[in-house]
Design a protein around this nucleic acid. Sequence first.
RNA 1: GCGCCUGUAGCUCAGCUGGAUAGAGCAACGGACUUCUAAUCCGUAGGUCGCAGGUUCGAGUCCUGCCAGGCGUACCA
Length: 555
Amino acid sequence: MIKSNLKQIVREAAQRAHAEGHLPSDDFPDVEIEEPKIETHGDFSTNLAMIMAKVQKMPPRKVAEILQPYLEEAAAWIQQTDIAGPGFINFFIAPDAWGPVLTTIHAANDRYGASAFGKGRKIQVEFVSSNPTGPLHVGHGRGAAVGDSVARILAFSGYDVQREYYINDSGRQIRTLGLSVLLRYSALFGESIDFPETCYQGDYIIEMARALKDQQGDRLLSQSEDEAVTTCARYAAGLIIEGIRQDLLDFGVSFDQWFSEQSLYDSGRVDASIATLREKKQVYEKDGALWFKSTDFGDEKDRVVVRNNGITTYFASDIAYHQEKFERGFDRVIDVWGADHHGYIPRMKAAVAASGVNPENFQVILVQLVNLLRGGAPVAMSTRAGEFVTLQDVVNEVGSDAARFLFLTRHYDSPLDFDLELAKQKSNDNPVYYVQYVHARIASICRKAEIDLPVDAPLDPQALAVLTDPEDVQLIKQLNRYPDIIQTSARFMEPHRVTFYLMTLAGAFHSYYNRQRVLTDDPITTKGRLYLVTAVQKVIRNGLALLGVSAPDHM
RNA sequence: GCGCCUGUAGCUCAGCUGGAUAGAGCAACGGACUUCUAAUCCGUAGGUCGCAGGUUCGAGUCCUGCCAGGCGUACCA
C-alpha cells in the first residue's frame, strides 16, 4: 500500500517536473520502488533518476535533484528524501505511517495478500500423475507439495484454478502390472512360475494377489491368460489409485479431477487427434510408422505417434490429452514433472503449438529429484527391487507438516536432500517448527490476554500510535512485504518464496518477542502490541495455509 | 557429441528477473530462562559469487567461451 502510493507519487513528480519545464522529455519508464538492504538508505528507494538520465540528457544525480522537491511536498508521511550513490532517491517514512498496514491486515484477515493478479483466468495445474503401478514415493511427494502449493498460490492470486491428476492407466506397463499380480496369484495356488525382472517386484503385488484370491478364489486360473491379465490389471490399478488418492489426502492434497488416459482411447479422442494431424499434414509415414513433424515447431527431431506395429505411443495420447485440456477452456496449462522428463518438453510444446495454441500458455514445472537420507546417510532405494520408502512411510514417520514444509524449502530447480532424522527433530534445525512456534506463541499470549481484556475489541487509535519504536516498525515492515511476496511467488510459480518469507518473518517475531513484552501494565501499549502480534499470527497462518501446513495453537 | 539444470561462507541454501557495503540457517566460539511457551533470543567469526572475457553509470544476476557435477538424448512410459 505504502509502496504503491509511493510509486504514484514518484510518477506524478516526474510528470509535474516535465510540465513545469524542468525535465525535457516526457518519456518516463515504469517506476520501480525497492527496499534497500541497508538501513541508512531509508525505507524505500527508487532508481528512476538513473534510468531516465539518458533520455533526459543529464546526469542521474541532476535528475534526482529536480525530482526531489516534488517528492518532499507530496505527502506528510514522507519524512525525508535523500539523493545517494550514483543517483538513488531514498525515502524515509514517518514511523507513525506504518500503523495502517496492521489495519489492512486485520480487515483483510485470511485474504491479506490475495490479489486479482490472475484476472480470473482459467488455469490448470496437473501434478503427481504417477503411474498406477505402485505406491507414491518421496519424489512424488515433492511434486505433490509443489503442485498443490502452486495451485493454492495461484488461486489466492486471482486465477480460476483446476487441479488434475492424469492416470496412465493404458498401455504396456499396465499389462505388466496385471501380469505381475497374476503370476503372484498363480504362485499362491502352488504353481511354480518364473517371476521376470521386468515385472513389479514389491511386496504390495503379493498382497494384492492375496486379496484377489480371497475375493475371487481360483476363478482366474480357468481364464485365458489374456483375460486373466486384464482382470488383474484392472483390479490392481483400481486398488493402487485408491491407495494413491488416500496417501495424497493424508498429505493434504486433493484434486478436482482424475483424468484417465484410457478414457482418451475409449472415447476415440486419440484417433481423432491423429486424424486431425493427418488433415493438417503435420504427420508423415516413414519405416511403417507415423511421425509427427515436431521439428516444424522447434523440436530437434520428429517423433513417432503410431509405431510400425500399429500401436500408438504414449506421446500420441499425450497430444490428445493436451489438446483436450485447452479445448476445456483453460487459458494456461501447467504440468508438474520430474526433472528426468525434461527431454520431453520440446515435443510437448511442439504438439501444443501444432494444435494452434500459443505454446507459452503451456508451461512445465520441472521438479528436481529428492535424495532421501537418514542421519546424513543415503537411504538405498530401488524401484526395480521393490525397495523404496513410500510417501506414506515418510508422512507416518515425520508428519505431513514437516514433509510439506521441507519439500518447499528449496527452489524446485535444485535437488533436495531430505533427511528423515532432521525432519523429525523438534529443534531449531527444523524450520517447520520455527515458523509454527510463532503461531503457537502468539496463541498463548492471546489466551493469557483474554483474562484481562478482549483481543477483538475495536482498536483504540491511541494504541496504534504506540507502535512507533524501531522494533515495532521493523516487524510491521516485514508484514507489509507479504502481498508482494505472494504476487512474485504466483508470477514465477515459486512456492519456496513463501517458505523463505515465513522463516524471515518468524525470525523477526522471535526477536521481537525476546525484546518486547506484549502484555504490559499499560493497557494502551498492550492493546497496540496485541494488535501487532495478532497481525503477525494472521500472516503466518495465511502463509502456512498456502504451503498446506497447519498453524497450531499449542506446541 | 548434442540439449537441459546446477555451481554463492566449512555444510545446506536464498538473493525480490540489472542496483548501493553479498544474505540466512546449520556447524564453531561467547552470552541470556523467577518473565506472554528457551521448539526462542543476543553477540563473534567466516567470501576471488566455478574460471576467463564482454555488454553499461552499475553484473551473483544478461551475452560468449571454457571447467566440474547431475539428468536427458527410444517405434519405453
